[in-house]
Design a protein around this nucleic acid. Structure first.
Lengths: 180, 180
DNA sequence: GTCTATAGCTCGATAGAC
DNA sequence: GTCTATCGAGCTATAGAC
């Protein structure tokens, strides 16, 4: 893997596990097993490091949106089912980026863009605005619970239980009008 | 108002508007129109300041839980309807505290406690676990959107529109079995 | 109860050797 | 492409005057 990606991985891990404050240039460099100078060769400033994180997030989100559109269960079921933190590349990008809200406006704008795109896809499937919003909010709620549970193991996160997931998906099916 | 409460208010405002990093002792003292030494007389350390914030949060949450139980529309409708950021004392406490997750474990524990209590109340009303979870998640999603929208004016926050709120409440009514 | 001054530390960023 | 060394700024916390 490129040193660049290695550094971004280290940055993500630190953000998720220890938060914004702990994700200093020195800590990122240390975790990537590079010196601070080595880091600053690839990213000229901390802003550049954040920008690199956002670029990767957008890439992952685009791939995810495509899978969301083509999933046989439909976008809504896909969205709710994948909103539980499972440690995917997108999950990690999102969790890490969430720690940086109000660091710079770019972070919030990027996350809102992605969020808006998801909503468009779900609205297209569901048709009705109210139900589409409810589905979105359930996914958002799951994501919020993951953030609230923080860097702790995914085991404790609400929604990991298979029965709970099935139950929730049936509620979503009712809301979307599919098989419900 | 006591200087203590004044300082906690200033701390909250800074956290909401500018984030954890900007909420330094100096900044808090300045916003409360007190010197840094004055602040440190009331709160011996930054941890003590955070602890003060958590105590107020718990107080507000207890009052809110009581209103939730006694609201004529039922706890679920109350929860979803009040999860939209409206600038109440509880809203501000929650938003501010949300910025401090992963600062110390105490923050996360306190928020999870409050969250658990809300769930108990809703489950008691709804009866069925799956539906109760769905209702909770919708509220959580609204709250997450508020956090995502950050310190920006509440106008842009999804869920502020009266029609949207009514539509959402009817979905909740369907899930809880009330009037739906 | 509130103030100023400052010690001690850590951060982001630069400079320059290799 | 990676390293060490260091500067200047900003942070928490302490000491002591008023």
């Amino acid at each position: 893997m490129s040193t660049r990606d290695n550094l971004l991985d280290a940055f993500e891990e630190l953000l998720i596990d220890d938060g914004e404050r702990s994700a200093t240039l020195e800590a990122v460099a240390a975790r990537a097993q590079v010196s601070k100078g080595g880091l600053l060769y690839h990213f000229k400033s901390k802003d550049a490091l954040v920008e690199g994180l956002l670029e990767r997030l957008v890439e992952h989100a685009q791939i995810d949106a495509e899978q969301m559109r083509t999933d046989p269960r439909g976008p809504s079921a896909y969205y709710v089912d994948t909103s539980v933190y499972a440690g995917s590349a997108l999950d990690r990008s999102l969790m890490a980026t969430a720690r940086l809200i109000q660091e710079t406006p770019r972070v919030r704008e990027t996350m809102q863009d992605i969020h808006q795109r998801w909503f468009s896809i779900i609205l297209q499937e569901v048709g009705e605005r109210g139900a589409a919003r409810a589905v979105m909010l359930i996914g958002d709620g799951l994501y919020y619970n993951a953030v609230l549970s923080g860097g702790t193991s995914a085991e404790d996160v609400a929604g990991t239980d298979p029965d709970d997931r099935a139950e929730l998906l049936s509620v979503v099916a009712r809301l979307t009008g599919r098989q419900g």
